[in-house]
Nucleic acid binder design. Sequence first.
DNA 1: ATGAAAGCGCTAACAG
DNA 2: CTGTTAGCGCTTTCAT
Lengths: 334, 334
Amino acid sequence: MEKQTITIYDVAREAGVSMATVSRVVNGNPNVKPSTRKKVSEVIERLDYRPNAVARGLASKKTTTVGVILPSVTNLFFSSLARGIDDIASMYKYNIILANSDESHEKEVQVFNTLLANQVDGIIFMGQNVSESIRKEIERTSTPVVFAGTLVDNPEYYSVNIDHTVATKEITAELLEHGRRVVLVTDEPKFLTSQHRLEGFKAAYEEKGVEFDEDLVIQQSLRYTDADKVLEELQTLKADSVIVKEDTFAAALMNAALDAGFKVPDDLEVITSDNSIVTEIVRPKLTSIQQPLYDIGAVAMRLLTKIMSNEEVEEKQVILPYKIKHRGSTLHTE
Amino acid sequence: MEKQTITIYDVAREAGVSMATVSRVVNGNPNVKPSTRKKVSEVIERLDYRPNAVARGLASKKTTTVGVILPSVTNLFFSSLARGIDDIASMYKYNIILANSDESHEKEVQVFNTLLANQVDGIIFMGQNVSESIRKEIERTSTPVVFAGTLVDNPEYYSVNIDHTVATKEITAELLEHGRRVVLVTDEPKFLTSQHRLEGFKAAYEEKGVEFDEDLVIQQSLRYTDADKVLEELQTLKADSVIVKEDTFAAALMNAALDAGFKVPDDLEVITSDNSIVTEIVRPKLTSIQQPLYDIGAVAMRLLTKIMSNEEVEEKQVILPYKIKHRGSTLHTE
DNA sequence: ATGAAAGCGCTAACAG
DNA sequence: CTGTTAGCGCTTTCAT
């Protein structure tokens, strides 16, 4: 037998007031006489009444819930952003529905629609890139969407990122300055991050006046097990330094190099881009572009709260500052 | 101006049928003539109608949503369980609300109640231990709760775990067999996992007939930065082998040892317990108790689906098998 | 400051 | 196979 759910009506009856008054008390509406507020509160306590958020959502057409789409909960880059999102959401009294997209565009669309069906007040989207299909869904809805740690080219979209072009250019230039032969490893060329990084990479070469060779870019899936293959290519290219996009892959690549007898950083410098805990766990520690992961998430969520409450937003595309964190996987400490 | 939300009523009117029929079509109820089903489907398509899950939840009193509470999204142990939970949930058409408890008992209670307010059909709880306050909440509600990767002593609670006592005993016995002086590092003694592990640890010593010394157990917070302190204690204890609970801490401890000039595994063997990706990233790789992380989550979710649909459940407390994965941080490959 | 009443969008008997 | 009719539990005008 089910526990009888007690409703706002039960409270009203017990307290000898109307549902409306109970509603006001629950929602902190000031237009209630202190004495009746007290009376109602006592009944709520006694009956252990808990407002039904679903009914509330239906009646008010607001759920105070935001959906967060991320490729994988086990990906440290995105889950670090999620922490920032979560903290700011609690701060503004929003609930979070975290939805895994499994790095599949199909599932992205599916979870996006599930979130809309559940009447979320806003959505934060994270992914490696933004597919045509998710774009279409975004156009269809009036629910606001903010991209976190996810580059978009459409200037109408809200997003929070660092400037990967500038960051990649800076670290590349620094390595070139030290006379190294620098190679860039990116994943799929159609991803905007790959393009931005490549742009910065090229710019550094050109500014230095060194001839830029397309061969210096390795386009490669960044799966852990592909490290050996990439290492071979690096040998062929006689690379001294390699800039990698993702921490786990950078670690795998460095380990492959070490296992093959390379000295890191002497024979090969390894630079990564997420600055997750992995950079500190490996030996030598990994030099990394230091992205403000928590802040990217936090700022994205704050931005979303502004949009949801129709506040003025100055900048649709927020660029946050980065740093270069020098560790043992590179020779120079700057 | 808002986009006019179109409702089941609009579809009914356009298609010249009743709301009930539209509802049947949407829910795949077989009692609809194919021709009208087709007609309704077309209108749904044309109007781009999307059922409102909130209204549905209110009317049916089921949300097909389960809440998942975990201490932190950036904790690889729990996020790996979450993957298993998520997969099985999708398989059974349940939505997931992932809620962060920030490793705080207070926040646990808070998110638990938020989930209940949102009328989730069930809850999966993960945490380092189960507080008195969360117990009280569980008693108050009729919503089913399953514990995943989280030990509970109450035999009425549903849970999925490995047997930490047996696992710890096995690895301890093996190390003792090789004549090592084995030390156990646990966190708070009040945690059940600590108690189970200690039990297995002791049992191995006693079975071996070696005198057991309470000093061989280090109770210590497992924060990354405390590794140096633990290393000192290990030196004092003249430990040859150390069994650690958590991968990241194990890595930190091993690194501290390496940085201090120890040879791993010759001078010090390090054994950890989660078998997350971290064990493969460090050098030497970490020997670990191999918990079936994904499966623990998957089985917990499957268990919950059974409870939610009132199916028969044989065993409330499920124990899954583990293995010992030998890697470079220990001397013997068994 | 409080109450009455009309929905929010949908499901679920029940009737036919 | 289809329609009618109550609600689900709450918010929100609109009166008073």
